[in-house]
């Protein structure tokens, strides 16, 4: 599929979603909005982790950065667009700082550093509680949506509007020279360097791009929840984001979309499945266990993720260039 086709698909997909928000009941619309917000984050993360091979366990913290920036700017009286811009700028800067450190690190060391970033959020909000109001967080005073639009529709449109921009920009970025450099650095740093690719520069840039996406996603979460607090960005969020992109299909935007859907749908499904069972200790715990089993089974049965499953396989010989060239070298490096 050519780049133009892909962008057309993205636009068509988002258009369909927006149509859905007109017919869905409010709660489904809200879930769609959540998917859109997650999609911004997973799309950025899959570019970083899937295409550039950098594992980040700290994207929850970057989302928190975006969310708090939006909350503080909105509460300072800024219009929503300016608040989004502020969220974008601040997370880009923070992403640049983390990215500079990250570019020197590999594999689990990078994971360790980003993990420490993820757990630092509540510490920062309570150390500077004058600004961030500790565990309780801030509420976000939003203007009511224009005209007869319901709150949920307005939230969904914002989320999917942002997702559209993020996806199209990412697609343009990874479809071009930058995308090839990302993969070259991931597959073989020495070869990439010999070919004239700035390894460190590419890695930092990848981190910055993905941080900016996470910031936008986080800002959207602040809008959806109309509040921000450290409890909403726990370590498990960062881990779930990684799980989502791997299960969805690492390295492709379609995989990121699947991941975003799963983040919303799987817990809800697990809850629905177990709802009929009435026993105290099972409540909450059974969905958790089911969720875990699903993860393991999917990973063992379909290691390429959902996006790699294709019922209409046209030819057994035609494999996606990604699985052929992409995944194996990752292993090579990890063993080197």
């Amino acid at each position: 599929m050519s780049g133009k086709m892909k962008i057309a698909t993205i636009v068509a997909g988002v258009a369909v979603v927006v149509v859905l928000t007109l017919v869905f009941p409010p709660f489904r619309t809200y879930q769609l909005a959540t998917v859109g917000a997650y999609l911004c984050v997973t799309a950025g993360l899959t570019v970083l982790t899937g295409l550039n091979g950098q594992l980040s366990l700290g994207h929850g913290a970057l989302m928190a950065t975006g969310a708090y920036t939006l909350a503080l700017s909105v509460n300072a009286g800024w219009p929503l667009t300016a608040a989004f811009a502020a969220a974008l700028v601040v997370t880009t800067v923070i992403g640049g700082v983390v990215g500079l450190a990250a570019a020197r690190l590999r594999g689990p060391y990078l994971a360790g550093l980003t993990l420490a970033v993820a757990v630092v959020v509540p510490a920062i909000t309570s150390t500077f509680d004058g600004t961030f109001n500790s565990d309780q967080g801030l509420s976000v005073a939003l203007e009511p949506p224009p005209g007869t639009v319901t709150v949920e529709q307005w939230q969904a449109w914002l989320a999917w509007g942002a997702a559209l921009i993020v996806l199209v920009l990412l697609q343009l970025l990874i479809g071009g020279r930058f995308g090839r450099e990302l993969k070259a650095v991931r597959d073989d740093e020495t070869a990439a360097r010999l070919a004239g690719v700035g390894v460190a520069r590419t890695q930092v840039l990848a981190f910055v791009v993905s941080a900016a996406c996470a910031g936008i996603g986080g800002a959207l979460f602040a809008v959806l929840a109309q509040s921000v607090s450290p409890g909403a960005f726990p370590l498990s969020l960062s881990l779930f984001l990684v799980m989502a992109i791997v299960i969805g299909g690492l390295g492709s935007l379609a995989g990121a979309a699947w991941g975003a859907v799963l983040l919303v749908a799987l817990p809800a499904l697990a809850h629905t499945v177990t709802e009929g069972i009435d026993a105290q200790r099972l409540e909450g715990n059974l969905p958790l266990a089911l969720f875990g089993v699903t993860l393991i089974v999917v990973m063992l049965a379909a290691p390429g993720g959902i996006a790699a499953l294709r019922p209409f396989k046209r030819s057994p010989f035609k494999r996606s260039p990604f699985t052929k060239a992409g995944l194996r070298p990752l292993r090579k490096r990890s063993k080197a």
Partner: peptide, 12 residues
Amino acid sequence: SSPLNGVVVALG
């Protein structure tokens, strides 16, 4: 094929 698969299974 990807080191992340092990991580995700462990999280599961």
